[in-house]
Measured scan of single mutants.
Amino acid sequence: SYYEILDVPRSASADDIKKAYRRKALQWHPDKNPDNKEFAEKKFKEVAEAYEVLSDKHKREIYDR
Protein backbone atom coordinates (compact mmCIF):
# COMPACT_ATOMS: atom_id res chain seq x y z
CA SER A 1 0.00 0.00 0.00
CA TYR A 2 1.02 3.63 -0.30
CA TYR A 3 1.15 3.79 3.49
CA GLU A 4 3.65 0.92 3.56
CA ILE A 5 5.77 2.54 0.84
CA LEU A 6 6.09 5.69 2.96
CA ASP A 7 6.24 3.65 6.19
CA VAL A 8 3.44 5.58 7.90
CA PRO A 9 0.21 4.44 9.60
CA ARG A 10 -3.17 5.06 7.92
CA SER A 11 -3.81 7.64 10.64
CA ALA A 12 -0.74 9.70 9.64
CA SER A 13 -1.20 13.46 9.46
CA ALA A 14 -0.40 15.46 6.33
CA ASP A 15 2.77 16.66 8.05
CA ASP A 16 3.82 13.08 8.89
CA ILE A 17 3.28 12.08 5.27
CA LYS A 18 5.37 15.01 4.02
CA LYS A 19 8.22 14.14 6.41
CA ALA A 20 8.08 10.46 5.45
CA TYR A 21 8.12 11.39 1.75
CA ARG A 22 11.20 13.56 2.18
CA ARG A 23 12.98 10.82 4.13
CA LYS A 24 12.14 8.10 1.58
CA ALA A 25 12.85 10.35 -1.42
CA LEU A 26 16.34 11.02 -0.08
CA GLN A 27 16.85 7.34 0.69
CA TRP A 28 15.87 6.20 -2.81
CA HIS A 29 17.08 9.10 -4.93
CA PRO A 30 19.00 7.57 -7.88
CA ASP A 31 21.95 9.92 -7.30
CA LYS A 32 22.26 8.54 -3.76
CA ASN A 33 22.29 4.97 -5.07
CA PRO A 34 24.79 4.95 -7.95
CA ASP A 35 25.48 1.21 -7.55
CA ASN A 36 21.82 0.30 -7.86
CA LYS A 37 20.38 3.12 -9.96
CA GLU A 38 17.62 1.16 -11.74
CA PHE A 39 16.19 -0.26 -8.52
CA ALA A 40 16.47 3.14 -6.83
CA GLU A 41 14.62 4.81 -9.72
CA LYS A 42 11.79 2.28 -9.38
CA LYS A 43 11.56 2.84 -5.61
CA PHE A 44 11.82 6.62 -6.04
CA LYS A 45 8.88 6.59 -8.48
CA GLU A 46 6.83 4.46 -6.07
CA VAL A 47 7.54 6.94 -3.27
CA ALA A 48 6.55 9.89 -5.49
CA GLU A 49 3.32 8.15 -6.55
CA ALA A 50 2.43 7.33 -2.94
CA TYR A 51 3.05 10.92 -1.89
CA GLU A 52 1.04 12.32 -4.80
CA VAL A 53 -2.03 10.38 -3.63
CA LEU A 54 -1.63 10.62 0.14
CA SER A 55 -0.75 14.32 0.15
CA ASP A 56 -3.94 15.24 -1.73
CA LYS A 57 -6.92 15.16 0.64
CA HIS A 58 -9.42 14.22 -2.08
CA LYS A 59 -7.22 11.52 -3.67
CA ARG A 60 -6.45 10.10 -0.22
CA GLU A 61 -10.17 9.84 0.64
CA ILE A 62 -10.78 7.90 -2.59
CA TYR A 63 -7.73 5.68 -1.96
CA ASP A 64 -8.86 4.91 1.61
CA ARG A 65 -12.27 3.60 0.49
Rank of each mutant, 00 (worst) to 15 (best):
E38D: 11
S1D: 15
H29K: 06
S1C: 10
L54R: 00
K57M: 10
D31F: 06
A14R: 06
N33K: 05
E4H: 11
E4F: 10
A48Q: 15
D7A: 09
K42S: 11
K45S: 08
F44W: 13
D16I: 08
V8H: 00
K32M: 13
A20S: 05
L6Y: 00
F39H: 11
A50H: 00
K37M: 11
Y2V: 03
D35Q: 11
R23A: 14
A12L: 01
D7K: 04
I62Q: 13
D64A: 02
E52D: 14
E52R: 10
K59P: 01
D35Y: 10
L26D: 15
I5M: 07
A20R: 01
A40S: 06
I5H: 04
S13F: 04
Q27R: 13
E41W: 11
R10M: 10
I62T: 07
L26I: 13
K37Q: 12
L6R: 00
F44S: 10
D56L: 03
Q27T: 07
K24N: 05
K59E: 06
K57A: 15
Y2L: 10
K24E: 04
Y21A: 11
K45M: 11
S1K: 07
F39A: 14
Y21S: 02
A40M: 06
Y51G: 03
A40P: 01
E46Y: 05
P9F: 06
Y51A: 04
V8L: 11
V8R: 00
K42M: 11
I62S: 08
D31A: 08
R10S: 10
D7C: 12
K45Q: 12
D56K: 04
P30C: 05
K42F: 14
K43Q: 09
H29T: 10
Y51F: 13
E38P: 09
E52F: 10
K19E: 15
N36T: 08
A14G: 12
Y2H: 06
E46M: 10
A14F: 13
S1N: 13
V8M: 04
H58W: 10
K32S: 14
F44G: 05
V47R: 01
A40I: 05
D16L: 08
R10D: 05
D7G: 15
A50L: 01
A48F: 14
A14Y: 14
K19W: 08
A20P: 00
H29C: 09
N33Y: 14
R60P: 01
K42V: 10
P9M: 07
Q27A: 08
P9K: 08
F44H: 06
P34F: 10
D64G: 01
R22I: 15
K37S: 10
E46Q: 11
Y21F: 14
E4T: 11
A50K: 00
Y51W: 09
A48E: 15
E38M: 10
Y3M: 00
Y2A: 03
P30N: 04
K37A: 10
N36D: 08
A14P: 09
E52Q: 09
S1L: 10
A12K: 02
I17L: 07
D31Q: 08
E4R: 10
F44D: 03
D7T: 03
A20L: 01
R10P: 11
Y21L: 04
P9E: 08
D15H: 11
K59H: 06
V47I: 14
L6M: 07
E4D: 14
Y21Q: 03
Y3F: 03
K19P: 01
V47M: 05
E49M: 14
W28Y: 15
P9V: 07
K59D: 04
K18H: 15
K32T: 15
K45L: 10
K18C: 12
Y51M: 05
L26E: 15
R65V: 09
L54T: 02
L6F: 02
F39V: 13
L26P: 03
D15Q: 09
R60M: 03
S13M: 05
L6D: 00
I17K: 05
D31S: 12
A40D: 04
S1G: 14
K24C: 08
F44Y: 13
K57G: 09
Y2S: 02
A50F: 00
W28L: 06
Y63G: 01
E49N: 07
L26F: 09
A14W: 05
P30A: 08
E61F: 07
D7M: 06
K43C: 09
K37G: 07
S1F: 08
L54H: 00
Y3A: 00
A12Y: 02
Y21P: 00
S1E: 06
A48N: 13
S13P: 04
K37R: 15
E61G: 06
D16G: 04
D64Y: 02
Y3E: 01
E52I: 11
E38H: 11
Y51V: 03
K24L: 13
H58T: 15
E46C: 09
K45D: 06
E46K: 06
A40F: 08
L26W: 12
K57F: 09
A48Y: 10
D64S: 03
A25M: 12
E41R: 11
S11C: 15
E49G: 05
N36L: 07
S13W: 03
D35I: 10
D64I: 02
S1V: 06
Y2P: 04
K24G: 04
P9Y: 06
A48P: 01
Y3K: 00
K24F: 06
D15R: 07
E4C: 11
A25S: 14
A50M: 01
V47P: 00
P9C: 12
V47W: 03
A40Q: 06
L54I: 03
D16A: 09
D15C: 09
A20N: 04
I62V: 12
A14Q: 12
D56A: 02
R10Y: 09
D7S: 12
E46D: 09
N36Q: 14
E52L: 12
D16Q: 13
A40C: 08
Y3R: 00
S13G: 08
S55P: 00
D31K: 08
Y63E: 02
L26H: 09
D31Y: 07
D7P: 00
K43R: 12
W28E: 02
K32L: 15
E61N: 06
I17M: 04
H58A: 15
K24T: 04
A48H: 12
P34V: 10
V47D: 00
K19V: 13
F39G: 07
K32E: 10
N33I: 04
V8D: 00
A50P: 00
Y63N: 02
S11W: 15
P9N: 07
D31P: 04
L6V: 01
K42N: 09
K45V: 07
E38V: 10
D7V: 03
A25V: 14
K19G: 07
K43N: 06
K18M: 15
E4P: 01
A40E: 03
D35V: 08
Q27N: 04
Q27I: 13
S13V: 05
R65F: 09
D7I: 02
R65D: 05
A14C: 10
P34C: 10
I17V: 07
A14H: 12
E4L: 10
D35S: 12
L6N: 00
Y2W: 09
R60H: 03
Y63P: 02
A14N: 11
I17H: 00
P34E: 12
E4N: 09
Y63M: 01
A20H: 03
K24M: 15
R10N: 08
D16C: 10
A12H: 01
D15N: 13
V8E: 01
K59T: 06
E46W: 06
R60A: 02
K19T: 11
R22W: 14
F39S: 05
A14T: 13
I17S: 00
N33D: 05
Y63W: 03
D56R: 03
Y21I: 02
W28K: 01
R65G: 13
N33P: 03
R10H: 11
K32C: 14
D35H: 14
K43W: 07
K42E: 13
I17C: 02
I5F: 04
K24I: 06
D7H: 07
P30G: 05
D16S: 07
Y63C: 03
D15A: 13
D56C: 05
E46G: 04
D31I: 07
L6I: 04
D64R: 01
N36S: 09
A12Q: 00
F44P: 00
A12W: 01
D7W: 04
K42Q: 14
P34Q: 15
R10I: 11
I5P: 01
I5V: 14
P34I: 10
R60K: 12
F44C: 07
R23Q: 13
K43T: 06
K19C: 11
S13I: 04
N33A: 05
S1M: 08
L26C: 11
D16K: 06
F39N: 08
H58E: 13
K59R: 11
P34Y: 08
Y63H: 03
D31R: 08
L6H: 00
S55Q: 06
S11H: 14
V53T: 12
E52K: 06
L54P: 00
E61A: 11
D35R: 05
K18I: 15
E52P: 00
A25W: 15
N36P: 04
H58Q: 14
V53Q: 04
R65I: 11
E49R: 09
S11L: 14
F39D: 09
R60W: 02
D16F: 08
D16V: 09
A12M: 01
A14L: 13
E52Y: 09
W28T: 03
V8G: 02
A12R: 00
W28A: 03
E61M: 08
E61P: 04
Y2N: 03
H29V: 05
